[in-house]
């Protein structure tokens, strides 16, 4: 059957909007709101500081932060180029995130798949789960020294725990009938694990990875606050000590920036890999 096209006279005679146009309009409006509100905040921010309504010590002007940032780019911070600070921090996060994801995934898959492994780890994970990872930080320094290892390990631990729990939930959420269907098609346990359970768990694994990454950035700053002379966390810590509020803001905003960018990248990867998830 052929669809009848409305002719142009009819189209112009239609009153009101069709649903598609309405949806498009709403989308545009929402986008404007999402952009307008932060812009407004920035303008207010610059206004209040420039007019001297708020003491620069509490809230530095935007332009002050930008010039501090440019100064850091030119001269580095505390004798180290800014890029080294940034790369140092990113290396810590992504080393920990990478290893943590692999470890968390493997444990989560085992715990999700084997009831007895789950039972064996159950009490330990339930006790560890509510404890903020930062509570362990001095303990980690005591055990692994004050250097790079304890910083990476504390981030790794925090992320791995999250990935593990999400992976386990993903494995357990695999619909029973898909497993049964695979069995009736001749699949053995290994094939079911590879072709059914693992792909079914992937969406949860990615969710876990995204949460873990944002937590990892949080732990990073705290770990770097504690000791060392390199990293964005160090900049924040050092700037605070010297009441360099502009420098403090530069550090905070950089963490936010890298957090957003890496989450965006992860989201794009996830949407390609687990494309079947809406």
């Amino acid at each position: 059957m052929q669809l009848k096209m409305a002719n142009s006279e009819q189209v112009s005679a239609f009153k009101g909007q069709d649903l598609q146009t309405q949806a498009l309009r709403e989308k545009a409006l929402l986008f404007c709101v999402a952009i307008a509100i932060p812009s407004l905040i920035l303008i207010l921010w610059e206004l209040t500081t420039r007019m001297g309504w708020i003491d620069e010590l509490f809230l530095p002007s935007l332009s002050g932060i930008v010039s501090e940032f440019l100064a850091m780019v030119r001269k580095g911070y505390a004798g180290t180029p800014l890029l080294s600070h940034v790369l140092g921090s990113l290396r810590r996060v992504f080393t920990a995130f990478g290893i943590g994801t692999v470890v968390g995934c493997l444990l989560g898959l085992l715990m999700g798949y084997y009831k007895y492994v789950r039972a064996a780890f159950y009490v330990v994970t339930e006790i560890l789960r509510p404890i903020p990872p930062l509570a362990f930080i001095t303990l980690f320094i005591l055990w692994f020294g004050i250097g790079e290892v304890s910083k990476v390990l504390i981030i790794l631990y925090a992320g791995a725990l999250i990935v593990m729990l999400n992976t386990m939930a993903g494995v357990q959420s695999c619909p029973k009938d898909k497993i049964l269907a695979a069995q009736t098609l001749g699949a053995n346990d290994l094939a079911i694990f590879l072709y059914v359970i693992l792909p079914a768990a992937l969406p949860s694994i990615f969710t876990g990875m995204r949460v873990a990454l944002s937590v990892d950035f949080g732990i990073l700053v705290a770990a770097e606050l504690l000791a060392g002379d390199l990293g964005i966390g160090y900049i924040i810590q050092d700037a605070s000590t010297f009441f360099n509020v502009e420098g403090l803001f530069v550090g905070i905003l950089m963490i936010g920036f890298f957090g957003v960018v890496s989450d965006f990248v992860l989201r794009v990867i996830a949407s390609k890999v687990v494309h079947w998830q809406g």
Partner: peptide
């Protein structure tokens, strides 16, 4: 136990979404 000699079609189709 289940075997490839006996196929099953489920109401929920149980397809592999991936």
């Amino acid at each position: 136990g289940p075997s490839a000699r006996r196929g099953v079609v489920f109401q929920s189709n149980a397809l592999f979404d991936w």
